[in-house]
Design a binder for these strands. Structure first.
Lengths: 127, 127
DNA sequence: CCGGATCCCCAAGGATACTG
DNA sequence: CAGTATCCTTGGGGATCCGG
């Protein structure tokens, strides 16, 4: 792709940090990884086991993206059996503060959402 | 799954409210719509103009999903020229509280994320 | 004015095999 | 052990046309 045209991603991209954040943690796995790393340093396969329904592929991608955005730090020990450790950065840790509030809200209001869905389905379609 | 280890991770199962929430607001437009409705009641085309880079299609879908989950309320006035009004529910308004904290965090730390990206790109690829 | 129905495209996500 | 490369599937999102 030699020449990427300036495709208008969003008109609100420049001053829209939340978009960046949502794009990162809105995916399937990022939040799980961040939560898993709350306990401390973990190696790749430890993470893989801890989240065990994630594939190596997705774990790798997710870690790379999180590292790229500065949420986690990757440390490679150049040894014969490779050893790589992942841990939260200060940025990652600080992020979990507001995130947990959102999680808490979700937890407290999930029942309402479910109720609303049933209600909607019930009133919308007779069948 | 009655008993797992010190799994503070939200299991990826039935009781995973955050997944529901992220799936809803992690999309392209939901947040924009919710923010737009903060000011009060708006009609369909008013919303369309306010977010003007959204298509009618996506606005319609987004509104329906938000209504389905109980974040907004839709009021139809059966008139010859159809009139439909949208407004936040209490649930939707309460959601914006933790959400704004996340937005605020994003706002305050966006520069760090951007820096991390440049840093990562700079150290990762020499070319 | 307010959408639904339809078609299309692309990128995110998964599975598997391979590598240093 | 810690990934990468490759292929494939899925569905979100856009454009457009149609209907009430």
């Amino acid at each position: 792709m030699p020449d990427t045209q300036t495709k208008e991603i969003f008109a609100f991209e420049q001053p829209c940090p939340i978009r960046d954040v949502l794009d990162r943690i809105g995916d399937q796995w990022s939040l799980l990884v961040l939560e898993a790393l709350q306990g401390g340093v973990l190696r790749f396969n430890e993470l893989n086991r801890k989240i065990d329904d994630i594939s190596k592929q997705m774990l790798s991608r997710t870690l790379k993206r999180l590292e790229e955005d500065g949420f986690i730090r990757r440390t490679l020990f150049a040894q014969v059996p490779p050893r790589v450790e992942y841990e939260l950065t200060n940025l990652g840790r600080s992020f979990l503060v507001p995130m947990h509030l959102l999680v808490q809200w979700a937890d407290e209001n999930h029942i309402r959402i479910c109720t609303a869905r049933l209600d909607y389905a019930g009133s919308g379609t007779g069948s």
